[in-house]
Amino acid sequence: MKNKRVLITGAAGFLGSHLCDRFTQEGFQVIGMDNLITGDLANIEHLFKLPNFEFYHHDVSNFVHVSGKLDYILHFASPASPIDYLKIPIQTLKVSSLGTHNLLGLALEKKARILVASTSEIYGDPLVNPQPEEYWGNVNPVGPRGVYDEAKRFQEAITMAYHTFHGLETRIVRIFNTYGPRMRLNDGRVLPTFIGQALRGEDLTVFGDGSQTRSFCYVDDLVEGIYRLLFSDYALPMNIGNPDEITINEFGEEILRLTQADQRLICKPLPTDDPKQRRPDISKAKQILGWEPKVSRSEGLKITYEYFKQIEDKNQQFKDFTYYNKHPVVMK
């Protein structure tokens, strides 16, 4: 793959950075692109020394130009946590509409295959469980989550329009809850929020009664599924996630055992339109890609916890350094 060139948007984000790792390791010439509105260069700084990686600081909601040939595009630029897309709703809508339009146009110009990152959120608060790709969803378009849900639904629609009208090679991955190193602590998603609270000695916040469910997929498994989907012949949306479903209460207890914390779970009101169930039907991924998750939740959580613990320790060291520089100890 040394002569194959791939553009990865959202390259400095959680998933984008792991995809940059995978494609550089596979020998691709990788172009990372990110406007850093939610991404962090620290996630990809280890790649800057590689001869097959380059980075562009750019917002794909504006016109996108890449010189030279381009074989593949992976569009992963988008806020993905409730805190982010509630804080920057217009940018969230633009990156999945204008941004996707720009990248589809670029793919058409370059005759490149494009894979776009959709989400389980297109199913909204589902009325069926598990959620198969044929399910159209139960989404409130004008609710607080609508800016993300509808942006992704439009993204799928315009991608399929380019596929059917222009004959563009497209792939659509519907990503379910994913976790692993490089997530941001306290980004509003349940796993980093729970671990962050446990590390700080705070009670774990459960919204609603905790009976709602989620299904957590470790990032390495997700990247493998995305990689296989890109090189498959399947153009319709495909679920990639881990069908091992767990309630939020059960998950909170797992985090408390993992972190050996003495805290407890406390309940707060459930946010508007928060989904009650999340579990992917991955029958298509198994049949077409020969893919299913390999990393158990217990194994993945240990790795993720160690990562967050290192981050929290560094943050505390920085706070201590800042404090003692502002309040030096005077020896008498």
Rank of each mutant, 00 (worst) to 15 (best):
Q155E: 15
G137A: 08
F231N: 05
Q310E: 15
T304V: 06
E26F: 06
K152S: 10
L258I: 08
E292V: 00
Q263W: 04
T92Y: 01
Y323G: 13
E253C: 00
T259R: 04
D84P: 00
P192M: 08
L98G: 00
A161I: 08
Y162H: 12
I37N: 10
A161Y: 10
P269W: 07
R278H: 04
P192N: 07
C217K: 01
F318P: 00
P51I: 02
G252D: 13
N62M: 03
M160N: 11
C217D: 05
K294L: 10
G208R: 06
N52T: 04
Q91S: 03
K2V: 12
D273T: 12
A117K: 03
N138E: 10
V206L: 15
L127W: 00
P144F: 04
S61Y: 00
P141E: 13
A285S: 12
S215V: 03
A157E: 15
A11N: 02
D125C: 02
I31G: 02
C267F: 11
I240Y: 06
T170D: 04
N249I: 13
E156T: 13
L199A: 12
I83H: 13
Q277G: 01
D40A: 03
R200W: 07
D71E: 08
I248F: 14
G290V: 09
L70E: 05
I44A: 03
G290Y: 09
L108T: 09
L74K: 13
N138L: 01
S118W: 12
Q29S: 02
S97G: 09
L127Q: 13
P82S: 09
K332W: 02
D40S: 11
K314Y: 12
T259K: 01
R278S: 15
E134K: 09
E54F: 00
H46I: 04
H101W: 12
D34A: 10
K94C: 04
P280M: 08
Y135A: 00
L191A: 13
A107H: 01
R200L: 15
F231E: 04
V190W: 04
N102C: 02
T193P: 01
A11D: 05
P132F: 03
A261G: 15
I240W: 06
A11V: 07
D187N: 14
D221N: 02
D125M: 05
Y162K: 03
D274I: 06
G143Y: 05
P280D: 07
P79D: 11
M331C: 06
G241P: 01
